[in-house]
Amino acid sequence: MTSYLIDDTDYRILQYLIEDSTLSHKEIGEKVHMTGQAVGARIRRMRELEIIEGYTVRWNPSKIGQSLLAFITVFLSSNAAHPPFQQFAKNHDSVAELHRVSGEGCYWMRVRLTDQVALNAFLDELLEFGNYRVNLGMGQLK
């Protein structure tokens, strides 16, 4: 993997975008003492170099009924279960994150669901691929 060096101004632009990706190029330019056009060129370059991979939105899942957060460690029953399990997780709207992990288990998932009934239904589907361990989120600290 190639490492890309960015200068201090690029880094500051990146930090402003990480904090608030809705800032205009002009607004960022005022903060870093550049024109909006120059900021736009630097952002395009960082996108081309894949330093910036995309933009995201911070949201409150409980405001739309997704108040249950579960962290699930998945233990697959066989090597053949990996591809179908990965497809299941990628296609399931409740799966917010999926990581292949070392140590205990094969995968770690972060899942958002409406309630305990939805969690039980999700876990029943997981049994097709292997076993699991569930930890419920009690409150986000960071």
Results as ranks from 00 to 15, higher is better:
residue 62 S to G: 01
residue 115 D to L: 10
residue 71 F to R: 07
residue 132 Y to F: 10
residue 27 E to F: 00
residue 36 G to T: 04
residue 53 E to S: 15
residue 32 V to K: 12
residue 131 N to F: 05
residue 88 F to W: 12
residue 122 F to E: 04
residue 121 A to P: 03
residue 100 R to A: 11
residue 59 W to R: 10
residue 117 V to A: 09
residue 41 A to L: 09
residue 106 C to D: 04
residue 1 M to F: 05
residue 81 A to E: 14
residue 40 G to C: 12
residue 31 K to T: 02
residue 67 S to C: 13
residue 76 L to E: 04
residue 119 L to Q: 12
residue 1 M to E: 08
residue 89 A to H: 07
residue 4 Y to N: 07
residue 142 K to Y: 15
residue 119 L to I: 12
residue 128 E to A: 10
residue 36 G to V: 07
residue 80 A to H: 10
residue 24 S to H: 12
residue 102 S to I: 02
residue 112 R to P: 01
residue 68 L to D: 02
residue 2 T to E: 08
residue 58 R to K: 15
residue 78 S to Q: 03
residue 34 M to Q: 11
residue 72 I to M: 09
residue 135 N to F: 06
residue 109 M to C: 09
residue 134 V to C: 01
residue 36 G to F: 09
residue 41 A to V: 06
residue 49 L to D: 14
residue 135 N to S: 15
residue 109 M to F: 06
residue 37 Q to P: 02
residue 33 H to G: 05
residue 125 E to S: 13
residue 107 Y to G: 05
residue 87 Q to N: 11
residue 70 A to R: 03
residue 60 N to R: 12
residue 120 N to D: 15
residue 74 V to D: 02
residue 118 A to Q: 13
residue 84 P to T: 01
residue 75 F to L: 06
residue 93 D to E: 15
residue 139 G to D: 04
residue 57 V to L: 11
residue 122 F to K: 00
residue 14 L to M: 13
residue 44 R to M: 15
residue 13 I to E: 06
residue 126 L to S: 01
residue 102 S to T: 15
residue 83 P to I: 14
residue 69 L to K: 08
residue 100 R to G: 06
residue 15 Q to S: 11
residue 43 I to Q: 03
residue 82 H to M: 01
